[in-house]
Each structure stands twice: as C-alpha cells, then as structure tokens.
Nucleic acid binder design. Structure first.
Lengths: 221, 221
DNA sequence: ACCTGAACACCGTTCAAGT
DNA sequence: ACCTGAACACCGTTCAAGT
C-alpha cells in the first residue's frame, strides 16, 4: 500500500547543497555548541534524514572543514585591494574583521584555528593578504613570516577571548577557593583588574599596536 | 553464589586518582586522537570500568579541563626565577618550553588553547610569568598586556604548526586541484616555499624576535 | 568511599533500497 | 542522482547496587 507523500513538516523543498548544509551547521553550532552538534540534529534542522548529508560530505570531519572555510569566507576582504589606502590600514581592517567573525561566531570559530584549510576561501584570503604585504614592500619570504606573525597573534587573541568568556566549551566547575590561596599568587592577584573581560579591548589594541610596530620595523630591513 | 574475585587481567591495583586518570588520558589522546578518545576506552586503559572515572571527575568536560591544566604543568618554569639571568632570556626559555609541550603533545595541546583554565597549574604559570615581567620593569597593567601578547602569539603559532602538520584532526580529503587553479593565486604560489613545514622553525624565530622586540619597546614607555 | 554493571538516550556511519 | 531508514557498533551519563 503506497504511502501518501508527506509534506507540511517541511514545505521548503530547497535542494540540499554543501553551502546550505554548512550554513545550517554554523547556525546550529552557535545555538547549541560544538559538543551538542550532530549530523542527526542537523538533518532535523534541514528537514531531511541525517544520511542525506553524507551524500554531500564524505564524513562529519569534512563538513567541519567546510564550516571552517565558510567562516573564513565571512572575513571582509573588501578593504584589502582598496586603492589609495595605505597598506597598514588595510591590514588593520582585515584583522579587525577577523576578530569580528570570531566574536559573532564564538562556538564555531575554534574550527578555523584547528583544522587545516585548503579551500577556495583559504586561497582567496591568503592571496588578499599577500597582496597587501606586497604593496607594503615585502618580498614573498618576509610576507609569509609577517602573515604568520599577524595570523598567529590574531588567532591566539580571538581564542583566548572566547575561552575567557566561556563561549567555547560548556563551563565546568571553577576551582575551589581553598586550592587557590590568593596569597600564594600575589603578582597575579595584583594584575587581576587587567585580566578581566572588561580589559579585553585594551589588551587587543596593545597587541595590535605591538605586532604592527614589529611589522613596520621588519620592512625597514 | 559468591563469585571468586577476578584478578589477572589487571594485577596493578593502584588506586585511581585524578592525576593517574589525566595522565592516562593524555597518553590515550596522543595515541588515538581527540576524536577517538572516550571515557570507555580510558577505563579499559586503566583496567577499570568507565564509570569509575566519574567518581573522580563530574563529567568528561571536567576531565578535559584537568588534562589541559596537566599539560600546562609540563611547561618548564625552572628558568623563570633564575637569579642572574636577564629577564628576556627567561621569557624566551619559558616560551620555548611551551612550544615544546605543544610539539610533544600535538593531539591534546588544543585543549590548552580552548578551555578556560582556573587551576593551580594555571595560577603557578601566571605567577611565574608575572615574576619575570616585574623583574623586567613592567607594572601590573603592562605585564598583563605583554603576557597576553606573548601568550596569544605563542598559542597561535603552536596551533598553526599542529594544524599544518595535520596532527590535530584526522586529515580529510584535500581540495581538488581543479578548484584551486594556481594561476588565480600568483602571490600565494610565489610564497609556497616559505609556507611549507620546512620553514616553520624560521617563521617561529622571526615571530619570537618580533614580539620580543615589541616587548622591549613597550618597556621604554 | 570507591567501584561496578545494567540501562537509557543518544552518536557516526554502512548498506541495501527506494524514487 | 539524490534521498531514505533500518541496522551496527559505538558514545556519555543515570542509577541502584555492591564492597
């Protein structure tokens, strides 16, 4: 006995695509966290079976890679090629946009830091960045070192901010006060006001100034 | 009918402790990867039921936090308080040891970057670092900014190296050559030799010189 | 206090089958 | 070509019970 075609629950019969799956996955991760993310929940979200996803991605790992690339694609590169804008300012704009992507996607952003990216988005990002550095007068070798210096710092800063805000993993119990007698750590206690979230912006600006300073000096050599 | 006490399979009846569990977990993660790690496998490793672990940690998340702290505890801080050694050199030694921990624990190290740490190990590390910076003449506010600048860069550098070596996640398929026509990314192609793993050490040294340079200049102000 | 083992509500992924 | 759904071999965690 043939069953009547079910509809209603999901009238939207958009065909599944890699992009649509990855975007829905990002949304789901931001809502429920990386630990809670599963292909089965994603299927429910998309109105299809979990297994349909595997027709577009060979494994969950590949889907996570695609998510990372998609996040990198959200970084605003429009300022990278802007005529008449001094290279350093273009660098700053790209870096600030990178930080903004981290802040608006706190729970999926770690994927960007942990997974090796070889995608169109990654290549586009690299090419734009190298373009700025060439305009700033760097040869390919120095461009690579500078790219990595800025990238490493920016990634570390973003992750640290997310971790400190407990936006990455579900927060677990804090250390019992008895274990961390503050008298044993006087220097840390003294620095507490500047370790708080309220100081993140100032710390970011100090870091940005510092690495840009180093970049400026590297150009002179 | 009482069963005879089983022994043999696990003669070693050391009592379970948080430290023993965390160390076995690190070993297991390094051998099989973070994705493959489970409390059940860890139980088998320790010769006990998976549930025994939950008597020492309220959840798997708490165990992961403990692993992160344990890793941080492996950083060699002996040079931090060394009399007669110039502060900058002490900073360098701690940073190099941090990198070394990442390289010797590639698959568990990401936990250190992603999880918020408030443990004895974290406090000890902070206090040692702040000690060096005080000796270098920094006040608490600048110490915090400098600590974060160095920490963010070092963490980003370590993660990037691990990701590039595909030591973090199980490697997935590479991008099809058709998608990344190298002619569309001439600057990136030109920089390829310096983006390879063989250049990691040089990039690390450039980065270290750069951030230390920035720190030295921050002290003057 | 510390550990067990059955049970529950999940996972990612395979496979043969449907359209 | 694209999607389904049952099935397999797993998970983390609960709970009542053992010593």
């Amino acid at each position: 006995m043939p069953r009547a075609p079910r509809r209603g629950a999901s009238t939207r019969r958009q065909p599944l695509t890699r992009e649509r799956i990855a975007d829905a996955a990002i949304e789901l991760i931001e809502r429920e966290g990386l630990d809670e993310f599963s292909t089965r929940k994603l299927g429910a979200e998309l109105g299809c079976e979990a297994m349909s996803i595997y027709h577009h991605f060979p494994s969950k790992g590949d889907l996570l890679d695609a998510i990372a690339s998609r996040l990198l694609g959200k970084v605003d590169l429009s300022s990278a090629a802007e005529e008449g804008v001094v290279p350093e300012l273009r660098l700053v704009r790209v870096i600030r946009s990178y930080r903004e992507v981290a802040r608006t996607h706190p729970r999926s952003f770690p994927l960007l830091a942990l997974r090796r990216l070889n995608s169109v988005e990654a290549m586009t990002f690299l090419e734009a960045f190298f373009g700025i550095l060439r305009d700033a007068g760097f040869d390919p070798e120095r461009s690579t070192d500078v790219f990595r210096l800025l990238g490493h710092w920016a990634t570390g800063a973003a992750l640290s901010e997310l971790a400190a805000r407990s936006q990455v993993a579900h927060p677990t119990r804090t250390v019992p006060a008895s274990e961390v007698d503050p008298d044993r750590y006087p220097l840390t206690r003294e620095a507490t006001p500047w370790l708080l979230a309220s100081h993140f912006d100032a710390t970011f600006e100090f870091g940005l100034r510092s690495v840009l300073d180093a970049v400026r000096r590297a150009r002179g050599k």
